[in-house]
Amino acid sequence: MSGAIHDSRILKRPATLRSVAISFLCAFLFMLLPWSGPWLLLRPDLMALLLVYWAIREPTLMGGWIAFGLGILADVADSSTLGIHALGYSLSYFLACHFRPRILSFYPANQALHVLPLIFASQLATTLTAWILKFPMPGWLWWLQSPFTALFWLALPAFLERQKTHNEPPRVS
């Protein structure tokens, strides 16, 4: 099937460290756009989504410290208490590593459904921490952020994957 994410029947070129870094940079810039009002609540958390994506696709390139570091970056960018996003992202990342074999066995739509709880775990951790610290809670739109983010899972391969061509030398690993 065309455009399938992580379909093991299609050989794909392995991602390079550079493409991973560039994808995170784009997600970070997306996060920094001047969001406000309801759009801020709905802003898809592409950083968390990419973390899950690369943890599943290129586990050897990723590590817990990347999730933690990106979380700290997100905290500074969002001017929230340092560590809130780091907690959520670390949780998402390790859950993604744990459920990797299971998620790989599904088709894209099913994968998106499985990615949803991973993203939601990050959001829930963030919200719970904010609640414990007695920050005011955002409106109900906030809870639509995870489903909205999971929808982007279906669009990711169009940006991040290229099918392997025949004349290309195989990667020796």
Partner: peptide, 10 residues
């Protein structure tokens, strides 16, 4: 480890 580090940061 990472969760504890994050909570310590918070």
């Amino acid at each position: 480890f990472y969760c504890a580090l994050a909570i310590a940061c918070i």
